[in-house]
Structure formats: C-alpha cells, structure tokens
Design a protein around this nucleic acid. Structure first.
Length: 555
RNA sequence: GCGGGUGUAGCUCAGUGGUAGAGCACCACGUUGCCAACGUGGUUGUCGAGGGUUCAAAUCCCUUCACCCGCUCCA
C-alpha cells in the first residue's frame, strides 16, 4: 500500500476512527468497525446526504439547475426481502459466477470470459477444442491453435473413413456453454476435447460456483423453501414500495425516494481497507420521472451529486465524473456516470468509484410487474424458461403511474444516484489527511499532522481548554464546554499537557475550532478561538461562543 | 481461492534456543504558560491464535487467522 494510505490507516486506528471487526479474535476479512470518532464522522456523512436529499429539500421551488420542482421522501426497508425480489431484479442469476482455475499457473477465469472453439467432423461429432480469452475476439484463435484443430479433424475423418468436408466446421461458445453442451450430449470431455487453460494450455478445474449474495434461512427449520438473501443493494426496497409511497405519500411525479442502509456482498477478495468490504452501507435514491424528461433529470442528478462532494471539501482535481462506455453499461441501463475519487491506494490517474448515477429506464418497475427482463436486440423482454413461461414471475401488480393532469398512464423512468457511505467516509478521510510544517515554541519547524475535515463532517467541532490548570480557568472552561454540549455541538474538554500539544491532538482528529480560557478571560469575559487550518486566533465573548461556532459550521 | 511478504507495549521497531527490550506515547508531581516531545517517578505485553520438538521457544516445526503485494474478482 502507498505510504500515505498506510499513515491514514494508522491514524484511523490510533485515534479511534476505524477498527477491524472482531479484532481480539484475529479479525474477519472484509468487515470493519467504526470507533468513537469514526462513528461521528460517518453519522455526519449520512446526515449531510439525508439533509441534502430530504430535510432541506423544498418541493415548492426548483433547485438551481433542476428542470422543475419535485418532491423527495424517504423510506427504511428490510435487509431481508422476498426471494422473488432478487430473482426479478436479476441479482439472483447475475451474482452466481462460475469460475475455473488453471492448475499450473493458478490463474482464475470466469467461465464466460473463456471462449472455446470446437471442431466438428463431417459426421458432426465434436473432435477437438481450443480455448482463448474471449476479450481478444476472433483473433484469439491463433494460427497454431487453428492448425491443431484442422489436423485433429483430418486424422479423425481418415480414421473413420469419412470424406473430409471442404471447410472445417468450427464453432465458438464459452466455457460454461461448452461444459453444458458436452454433458448434455453425454460426451466425455477428455483428450483433444478437454478444455485447457487458454494461456498456458494447462489443466483446468471444473467450473465452481461463487455466490456473491449472502444466504440465510428464514424460520428455525432449515430447508430450500426458507432460503433468503441479505440484500446486495438497498434500491429494491424503493422499487417494491413505489406504489405504497405513491398511494400514501401525496407525492406526484417527478419525485424521489431515498434510503440509507446496510447491504451485503460476499466479495471474493475484499481489499483496500474499507473500500471493498462485505458489509457496507449505501445511500441510494430512486428518482421517478416521465420518460420524456428522464435524460434532463439524469444530467441534473449527475451534476448535483458531483457538487455535493465538492461542497463537502473534496478537491476538484481528485474527483472525476466519468460516463460509462456503451460496453460498460449494465443490461438495464441506458446511461450511467460514475463519480470517482483518486484514492491514495490507487495508481496515478486511476480512480475508485464513490457513486454511480444510473439512468435505469423502466427496467426495475417493469421487472417487478412482469418478471425478470432480458435484453433482446434493443428491447427488454420477459425472460422465458424451456416451457415458454416467465423464468421468474413478477408481482403482477400494476406499478404504472396515472398523471391526472395530462390523463396519461405510464411506467415512470428511474434515475438512481447510488453512493457508498463507507466509501464516501473513506474519501473524506483521505482528502482531509494533510501534513504541514509549523513552528514550535522554540521557532523550529515541526511536522504537523492535520485532518482538514469540512466543519460539518468533523467528528468533534470544538475543543475547550483552560490555558493552565489553575487560577479558576478549568472552571470557566468547563462551563463553556457545558454550554456547547447543551446546544448539541460535538465538543471535547482537555486540560492535559501543554497548550501546543493539546492543539496538535485536536489537529490530528480534525477538530476545526479550539477555545482557550486564559488569564484575561476573567476581566474581559472573552476566550481565544483558534482556527485549525489558518492557526488564526480571535477573541470572542463567552456569550457568543455557541452562535459563533454554529455560524462557522453551518455558514 | 493461489503465490510472495508481514504479525513482539497504544505507535515505530530491535531481539536467530537461555530472566521480553528501546524510543515515542500514556499517567502522577514539578516547571513553562497560546502552538507537541524540560526534570523526576511510574504504568503498559498470553511475542496474532492453536498444537508440537526441547531441560528451556518470540526464536525451530506443523496448523490456523488477519494484514500487505501480485493474480482473480468487484460497487
């Protein structure tokens, strides 16, 4: 890991931001706890998001840049939902990955990433196969591999006394389809028909399943019927409650439903500190609008979400808004942009995803009406099973929306800004970390570690110190501390050690303001307010302390 | 899951079979009194966990867990 990231991780542990889960038992991979300061920081991140989305939103006027006024509302839905939700959403099928390992090189491949070219003889029996990486495309089948196939064909046809076909019959499928095809045709995949490692030609393991959704069981008796999943995203909670919210909430399209909550994914390799963990928190919002206006809203939310991070202190050079290419787009999406941050653990010019803003069309509501959808050309149609029935049946409920002004009935389109609360918290931690040089009392330059959190996000807003531990200063300081606490401001009191040391302690946890009671306080009823970033000191009356701090935090 | 590295005090680390250490941190007292490490004294460890070899293990062996790097995967 990069040096700077190591320092951030060490500071987070030392000062009580983030701990490994179950650490006394050796820890648990992919799970993290927030400590006394971390919990405050993350609460502030959530609060900034919820406040922006819901609390301070005024549905009577269009915010700057918005096409028109709109309503915003929240929900909190369960982590375990009806299994059909995940079947119709596509997660059930999509989150089962089959993988093979190369026994020699130890490389692992997703079965659908490996292409298999199968040569068929003129009696249409499969004779030999060669593998190559699917992403290389047609050229992946090198001249050597093609020659080998042709040679195997010629030998077979000669042995069987067949007339060789003019052009050798070679068809391509992926490793999964190949394994399935061979087992259905009851042909042992051995010898020349054995699919081998596309890169080394070594032996491969059989396809093995990796399930990315956490399974659990409902009810005390274990059984297939009771199998349920921990949600891999919070979004489905909003979709399945769309009708409830419309019917009860007096909201009219366009409007959004927001939710903050835990999600779970059984990541194969959780890594990069809390960036990819198995239990994580999402801040998601589903915005329902008329199809004709959807692209305008998509652009609006993309820009608005970008600005949210900037306003909370992320530097513009560390945050990028990247539109997905056509190939990257998920099956449901007609447009997606990622908000990505230059995390210190990434390479130069590489970014890690903080949030995806996706135009999901009518995919979600339609899936929950009709059943799991699949792309067919440029259409989404209900996926069918062998009997021609829907593979996974939808709810059958009418999730269309009736606009009583225009007398139009339609399935709303959805714009989804989906942010990771832990990732945002990590980005704010990384962005805040800073080392500068400040003179000590002898005038020598010393390295100062300072977390330059936006005051709204800082876990502690203000620290109160008596300059010295006597002459009545602790009493005055503790009464100021009490005032701040009573006003609901996150504050700490510290009388331990030299004043400079106390300032540095607060710098390291990112406290934006320090108040110091000194010898003159008794006469002038004022204290010194010291700013974390500029180190400027101003004297303010004790009676103004609460309002001054509030003004500096919330502007 | 695979390969390589790492794991000793709150932190950074020393300690290659023989009484667990240093610096910083932390606590107390004193001193100073608006930008950290001045004096005196003090606290701190199942040496990641479990098992084995040995008279004796932080040290050698086995198993296991976690972290880091690479592959793989991914929001």
């Amino acid at each position: 890991m990069k040096k700077e990231m190591e320092k951030i991780v060490a500071l987070c542990k030392r000062r009580g931001f983030i701990f490994q889960s179950s650490e006394i038992y050796g820890g648990l991979q992919g799970f993290w706890d927030y400590g006394p300061l971390g919990v405050e920081l993350k609460r502030n991140v959530r609060e900034a998001w919820w406040s922006d989305m819901i609390t301070t939103h005024n549905e009577l006027v269009a915010p700057e840049g918005a096409p028109k006024p709109f309503s915003m509302t929240g929900v909190e839905t369960t982590i375990i939902m009806h299994p059909s939700v995940w079947k119709c959403s596509g997660h059930y099928d999509l989150f089962h990955d089959f993988m093979v390992d190369s026994k020699e090189s130890k490389a692992r491949y997703r079965v659908d990433h490996v292409s298999v070219a199968v040569a068929y003889a003129s009696d249409s029996a499969p004779v030999a196969c060669e593998t190559y990486m699917a992403d290389i495309g047609e050229e992946g089948l090198s001249k050597t591999k093609r020659k080998r196939l042709e040679k195997a064909l010629a030998e077979y046809e000669k042995e069987q006394g067949l007339t060789p076909s003019e052009t050798p019959q070679i068809s391509v499928c992926n490793l999964m389809e190949y394994a399935k095809m061979m087992s259905e045709a009851n042909i042992p995949a051995t010898g020349k028909l054995e699919a081998r490692c596309p890169e080394t030609g070594g032996e491969l393991t059989a396809p093995r399943e990796f399930n990315l959704m956490f399974k659990t069981i409902i009810g005390a008796l274990a059984g297939e019927e009771g199998t349920a999943f921990l949600r891999p995203e919070t979004a489905q909670g909003m979709f399945v409650n769309f009708k409830n919210v419309v019917d009860s909430g007096r909201v009219k399209i366009p409007f959004g439903i927001a939710q903050i909550g835990k999600s779970f994914r059984n990541e194969i390799t959780p890594r990069n500190y809390i960036f990819r963990s198995r239990e994580f928190e999402q801040m998601e919002m589903e915005f329902f609008c008329h199809p004709d206006e959807s692209f305008e809203w998509y652009k609006y939310w993309r820009d608005r979400r970008y600005n949210w991070y900037i306003k909370l202190g992320i530097a513009t050079e560390n945050l990028i808004l990247r539109d997905h290419t056509q190939e990257e787009l998920a099956h449901y999406s007609v447009g997606t942009a990622d908000l990505e941050y230059a995390f210190p653990f990434m390479e130069e010019n590489e970014y890690g995803e903080l949030e995806g803003v996706a135009h999901r069309g009518d995919f979600d509501l339609r899936s929950h009406m009709e059943g799991k959808l699949v792309r067919e050309g440029d259409q989404l149609v209900v996926e069918k099973n062998e009997q021609g029935q829907p593979k996974y049946k939808g709810s059958g409920k009418d999730l269309t929306y009736f606009d009583d002004q225009t007398r139009e009935r339609f399935i709303p389109h959805v714009i989804e800004p989906a942010a990771g609360a832990d990732r945002a918290t990590l980005a704010f931690l990384c962005e805040a970390y800073y080392e500068d040089e400040q003179p000590d009392e002898k005038g020598e330059m010393q390295t100062r570690t300072v977390m330059r959190f936006h005051p709204r996000l800082a876990p502690v807003k203000v620290a109160v110190f008596p300059l010295i531990k006597k002459a009545g200063m602790p009493e005055v300081a503790s009464s100021i501390y009490q005032r701040l606490k009573s006003a609901g401001i996150q504050a700490v009191y510290d009388q331990q050690g030299a004043i400079g040391r106390r300032y540095r302690r607060q710098d390291e946890i990112g406290t934006p303001f320090c108040l110091t009671v000194d010898g003159e306080t008794e006469q002038d009823k004022c204290v010194t307010l010291r700013d974390r970033d500029t180190l400027e000191q101003v004297r303010i009356p004790i009676d103004d302390v609460v309002t001054e701090i509030q003004k500096r935090i919330y502007g």
